[in-house]
Nucleic acid binder design. Structure first.
Lengths: 264, 264
DNA sequence: AAATCTATTGCATATTATAAAATATTGATC
DNA sequence: GATCAATATTTTATAATATGCAATAGATTT
């Protein structure tokens, strides 16, 4: 009876289009060409209906039918559409748009950094309600070994990219050996550290580098498992960097949501 | 009366889906976010109809609506769909897997681009050493006339595919004639240039377009001698783009090795 | 503050998607 | 080579649903 009873979410659309798009999405998630019957089973829709949808998708090139087997697969049109979407999608900006929300939810200062010629570079930052002295302006580059952000870069970028800077920081640290006390100050020490970071999925620093400030950082990954960007949360309370803190969970969720590879 | 008399070609589909997909395709070809009214004008459909289609597209994530302006654009769902479609083509996967090796061997940043509606689009990239062009990332589209990648596309794709963009770039260049000084800024000049590229098998640009950056690019060909993808190497040292440099040889070998593959 | 433009929502009607069954096509078995 | 089984496609009557008009809400400009 009531037009909106079906699903609370889907408002003001067209039913047949919604189900048709579900078919398309299912075909995409399948990861391979499917027969009509397989697809109709997966979507839990009558085959005859799915067939009509697929015919229309074929007209537009979004789907192609393999001549002999009769199976259906995504077509050139889907590639072109995706590339068009990719081309005008400024991922830095979309991520940055969500940054205030993260800062507000966690009550911490949030940073968005990308890799630049001289290390991780701050491109956006969002301070939280709790005011905080900060020398972190846009364009600031952070150290590789002694910042949470840098440590994520270390761990999620190819070594050839970071090696030059790592070596230079190591030289600097050799002159003040007591600075870096949670990592062996050598190339192999750095490698071991990176492995540990990748296992946990994030990096953190307590107040030893910047007294009074603690930070956790996690990567936004592309499908090559490399860091497109790094999100960092900065606060004053050491408890925020403990594993399983709510800040941690929110950071993890944020990064997952903004990584391109996050389907489902 | 008869249900199939309307259009001889479109058989056995669903009318509303066909028109809805036409809307989607129009939005893709537009190359930018569009307002409802613009889109309905372009499709020659009543705005209210288009609006309902867009609502459904939004449910699936294929389209997103920009909060303030209310304009509609392709969304994350379109990206995922396109990437899924790309992944079905074996050549992309096999080539992409080998890309890190090429980048490491040459010490240069390596790009894998495929042709999209708005020009060659970066699908994978593997950075190297300290070189970082922040304006270059996944989904970046490169110019046809003033990039090594684009010049390969010019030369190894049918002219009907590229003509539209060539003309638009030529118009742009006519206003700054001194930009393009190694090619005649006309359709015939472009054709002559393409012949020369095909003879050599690669294209290159020195630092004149992006100061300080040099690039060489070569095609990965299908059985019709057309480019299904373009591999580009980017560096800072002008010597790398000299013919017979080791980078050249490695690029040529790489493209040769990956051109044979595919099919069946 | 009024006006104009644009996007969004309700509602009655007819167009159009739907489902069941029939038919065609392919693949396998004897 | 012919028959059977399985899957894909087409047909057709029915009723569900997309449509278009008109009204509302929202935003930007004068």
């Amino acid at each position: 009876m009531s037009s909106l009873s079906q699903k609370g979410e889907a408002a003001g659309g067209i039913q047949s289009l919604d189900t048709a798009l579900r078919v398309l999405q299912t075909l995409g998630l399948a990861g391979k060409a499917l027969s009509l019957s397989e697809l109709s089973r997966l979507c839990d829709l009558p085959a005859t209906k799915v067939h009509r949808y697929l015919a229309s998708f074929s007209h537009s090139g979004l789907v192609v039918q393999n001549g002999r087997s009769g199976t259906y697969d995504l077509g050139q049109g889907a590639i072109l559409l995706g590339l068009a979407a990719l081309a005008r999608h400024d991922f830095v900006n979309t991520t940055a748009d969500a940054l205030p929300g993260l800062a507000e939810e966690t009550g911490l200062t949030a940073l968005l950094c990308v890799w630049g010629n001289s290390g991780p570079t701050v491109v956006r930052w969002q301070r939280s309600t709790s005011l905080m002295v900060t020398s972190l302006g846009l364009g600031t580059t952070l150290p590789l070994l002694t910042s949470a952000t840098g440590r994520v870069c270390l761990s999620y970028l190819p070594e050839v990219v970071t090696r030059h800077l790592v070596e230079s920081e190591l030289r600097r640290i050799k002159r003040n050996p007591n600075i870096l006390d949670d990592m062996k100050a050598s190339l192999t020490g750095v490698r071991e550290f990176a492995v540990a970071v990748r296992e946990r999925g994030f990096a953190s620093v307590d107040g030893r580098f910047i007294p009074g400030l603690v930070a956790i950082a996690a990567p936004i990954l592309d499908w090559q498992e490399q860091a497109q960007a790094v999100i960092t949360l900065i606060g004053t309370d050491p408890r925020t960097i403990e594993p399983n803190s709510t800040a941690h969970q929110m950071l993890a969720e944020f990064c997952r949501a903004h990584s391109i590879v996050n389907q489902k």
